[in-house]
Amino acid sequence: MFVLTLLLVFLAACGSSEPEVLRLATTTSTADSGLLEAILPEFEASHDARVDVVAVGTGQAIALGEAGDADVILVHARSREDAFLAAGHGTGRYDVMVNDFVIVGPADDPAGIQGMATTQEALTAVAAAEAIFASRGDDSGTHTKELQLWTAAGITPDPNSSWYKSLGQGMGDTLLFANETGAYTLTDRGTFLSMQANLPNLTIVVGGATIAENGDPALLNPYGVIPVNPDKGNINDELAQEFAEWLTSVDIQEKIGEYGREQFGQPLFYPDSEAWRNR
């Protein structure tokens, strides 16, 4: 009888604490940098919820949102975010944080771009020297940004040329490729800093040592959070809205700004929500 009671109590406990699930589709940079791991447990505890993180390229994260396979997306490709909203897939877009891109390359710098202030000059020099350039080539936020930078420089790189390598892989793989082959590549600063120990042949050639020293505004990389339109069905809209509100709140913004300071001597992301700017 005692055992039975215990069992019932146990089962009842299981039933009542079954947490709600929030499906978050996001980019590899937020997951690989360790940021989500650092902040999400607090949300899970305070909202009695479990967050399932799907870390993919921005292209797939947006596709997951469009298909209703995610409740909320956290991505960084402004033009595509706007298109996502315009098509009615999301209920609103909220600024979350900013980091920046840098161009990294081999220390011997075959294209001679070290210290150039703008990517426009640097990419023009890379193309002129036909120095190897590794492109993500995967429709990710970083890839989208890279293509915009080439367009701004008035160059259309041919993926079948000998110097422009379109990999179709994640940021980490692309950095390892550049490290092995002596290639230049565009990366977000956070991923580069977190992997720098394994990339002995690469240094930052354009973008400066910190975000404050980055002289090219085109390299800023804003992240937005978008709750998916509940009309798609099976969307946990309430929790998604709460998540967006939580992520942009001053408390969490402060935590985002602290993340990475200890390990890398500088934050990997800078808080930039409306609430943070108006605090």
């Binding site: 993919v56 390229g57 292209g59 797939q60 947006i62 596709a63 997951l64 469009e66 080539g137 995967d138 429709d139 993926p159 079948n160 390598k165 379109s166 990999l167 179709g168 892989q169 793989d173 490729f177």
Partner: peptide, 22 residues
């Protein structure tokens, strides 16, 4: 191989890439 377009991209790596792209 590195899944380099026009150099080392094969069917399986292309499938992974296109799925990731949506």
């Amino acid at each position: 191989g590195g899944n380099i377009q026009g150099e080392t991209r094969v069917l399986t790596t292309a499938i992974v890439l296109e799925t990731r792209r949506g």
